[in-house]
């Protein structure tokens, strides 16, 4: 039970770390929100896409801090970290293949399904009308 001695020592460090990580998470979230607000004013698709990319990166950073510090993974033995991080790499292909095929399916629909194509250009009335659900239903049918 030699570790009781360590604990006093660690406790202070630990609390400091928690506060630091809390601060980082807060700042990251605020930056995300700021980007979100900024994006509302932007029309250009390219810029929007870039902002979205940045937001995703910030999201990964937040995930890193939660897993690494709150869930304490960074302080575990290296091999254990590997057993968790390596399988997560499967997500790369999981996401890539799924999204690529989703996109391809849209292109197929837009090329060969004239109804879908028409729907994707036809504007519907503004929201006030749409609010009443029965009408929406009819529109869909």
């Amino acid at each position: 039970m030699e570790h009781t001695a360590h604990i006093e020592h660690h406790a202070e460090d630990g609390k400091k770390e928690v506060m630091r990580v809390t601060l980082i998470l807060t700042v990251l979230t605020l930056v995300e929100l700021a980007l979100g607000f900024w994006m509302m004013k932007i029309e250009a698709q390219g810029t929007r896409l870039m902002i979205k990319g940045v937001i995703v990166i910030l999201m990964m950073a937040k995930a890193f801090y939660i897993v690494g510090y709150f869930m304490h993974l960074k302080h575990e033995i290296r091999n254990m970290i590997m057993t968790i991080v390596v399988p997560l790499l499967l997500f790369v292909w999981f996401i890539g293949a799924f999204l690529y095929d989703g996109n391809s399916f849209k292109n197929l629909r837009m090329t060969y399904d004239s109804h879908k194509k028409e729907m994707s250009t036809k504007k519907v009335e503004k929201k006030e009308e749409v609010k009443e659900t029965p009408e929406v239903k009819k529109a869909v049918e």
């Binding site: 499967l90 292909w93 999981f94 293949a97 095929d101």
Partner: peptide, 18 residues
């Protein structure tokens, strides 16, 4: 085993390049 699942879908509408 995790990387090859779509070989069951070659002719069901999967993108051919994929």
């Amino acid at each position: 085993a995790f990387l090859v699942w779509a070989h069951h879908m070659f002719v069901t509408g999967l993108n051919p390049f994929l």
